[in-house]
Amino acid sequence: MDQFIVSPLFGDGPIAWYTPTNVTLWMVLTILAIGALLVLSTSRRAIIPSRAQSIAELVYGFIYKMVEDVAGKDGVRYFPYIMTLFMFILVTNFLGLIPTAFATTSHIAVTATMAMAVFLSVTILGFWKHGFGFLNIFWIGQAPLPLRPILALIEVISYFVRPISHSIRLAGNMMAGHAVIKVFAGFAVVIWIAPVSIAAITAIYALEVLVSFIQAYVFTILTCVYLKDALHPHH
């Protein structure tokens, strides 16, 4: 579990909130990677795109379409925020897969901050747009009247569980993947298990590449779904 330890970049000592740590390092690398992918690659503004520009356009189109499809036309205003979340999670997930790297998204503090940010902004947005009409998302009009209070209770609980599941899903997936690889790496010191262990690490690594993308996608699409609830609280 040592790979998850936060340590200061310069010297030893207590870690204050402003101390530059390995978290800082890998987040700065994330910013640089996103800059390279989305800014540098598009600097020529080519009508016929280069490979890197194609990828940038693909990511843009992918998230733009997701926001438009899930949250609706009026959700497109929030596209930059959702794109920010997606790019951050995607790139940190991938960077975390580099051996000896520090996976920032495997920490609950990071994912919970993002999930709470999404939860709070979506809730505030809902009340700001619809006033108390936002509470309609808990009151299911199509259900038979006697069932509605029960359903409302369930809806309220599920609403408040959202940020928890939202954050733990991402952190848990990332941590689990890294931990499994670590476990198999531990077996690799035994000579007659080593081939199996290395094969397993390779396989798990491939799976983790997939999971990195899928978790970024899931986090983003859930954000879009919550945003849709805030924008259109009527079922």
């Binding site: 936060v6 978290v23 987040m27 910013i31 800059g35 800014v39 930059p80 979340l85 920032t104 990071v110």
Partner: peptide
């Protein structure tokens, strides 16, 4: 606190670069 602080800084920088 350290992680949250740097996360917020990173997200703000990414948001500015993107938007």
């Amino acid at each position: 606190p350290n992680q949250v602080f740097w996360l917020l800084v990173t997200l703000v920088v990414i948001y500015l670069v993107l938007s």
